[in-house]
């Protein structure tokens, strides 16, 4: 059972997470059928930029975040932006985007000049996230936990960040037990996905580099 305080925390973070919309003009661009690899690439960069802005807005609402040292705020966001983006993409891919958009999005990604060695792990990750059948609360909390990781590079006051992250991990564990009572490994699986997410930081940097070279 969550305490009242914990339930309020979950509701608050979920609401902040739900406020992240999918811009209408992007849906239209996604649905436009005829597009070149270059156009697809440009659309993806536009989506990525919007993603980052949306992640920052969500992060600003996390309890205690704005009280952190300003440069630590930057370090946390820089360190987690790519991971948060992939988490959000996984959720959109598995949950919010209707069938057609998912196919269109996948098509655009596969035809954007990105090398197969980056595409395959991306979609494998989306599918493995889908297999977990996470609820919205889990996605919201996992995103917050990812962003509030005290071990990011350049974070100076790690203890302050830990104090913000710990209560969220506690709550997530309870929610996992509640939502997935038949699967006691579920929480551990979620944490395992966080480790998988970290591999995307390196992948993403490599992918951008190879894009530029191409």
């Amino acid at each position: 059972e969550l305490t009242r305080e914990q339930q309020n925390l979950v509701n608050y973070i979920l609401e902040a997470h739900l406020k992240q919309g999918f811009p209408a003009d992007m849906s239209n661009k996604l649905l436009r059928e005829q597009s070149s690899a270059e156009e697809n690439f440009l659309l993806l960069t536009e989506m990525a930029t919007t993603h980052v802005q949306v992640i920052v807005e969500f992060t600003k609402k996390l309890p205690g975040f704005q009280a952190l040292d300003h440069e630590d705020q930057i370090a946390l966001l820089k360190g987690s932006a790519v991971e948060a983006m992939f988490l959000r993409s996984a959720q959109i891919f598995n949950e919010k985007v209707p069938e057609d958009h998912t196919e269109q999005l996948e098509d655009k990604i596969r035809n954007s000049g990105i090398s197969q060695e980056y595409i395959t792990p991306m979609f494998n990750f989306y599918k493995s996230m889908g297999d977990l059948k996470m609820c919205r609360e889990e996605y919201a909390l996992l995103t917050a936990i990812t962003i509030l990781s005290p071990d990011r590079q350049y974070v100076r006051n790690r203890e302050s960040v830990e104090k913000l992250q710990e209560p969220l991990i506690e709550v997530l564990q309870k929610i996992c037990k509640r939502q997935h009572p038949g699967n006691p490994q579920h929480f551990a699986c979620l944490l395992g996905r966080l480790t998988e997410l970290r591999t995307f930081n390196h992948q993403h940097a490599e992918m951008l580099m190879s894009w530029k070279v191409n």
């Binding site: 802005q53 949306v54 600003k60 930057i74 820089k78 932006a81 940097a205």
Partner: peptide, 21 residues
């Protein structure tokens, strides 16, 4: 890398509330 600089720039601006989302 230039890509990292771009990311930080977006983050700083968004933190200051200079971007409409």
């Amino acid at each position: 890398p230039a890509s990292n600089l771009g990311l930080e720039d977006i983050i700083r601006k968004a933190l200051m509330g200079n971007i409409e989302t």
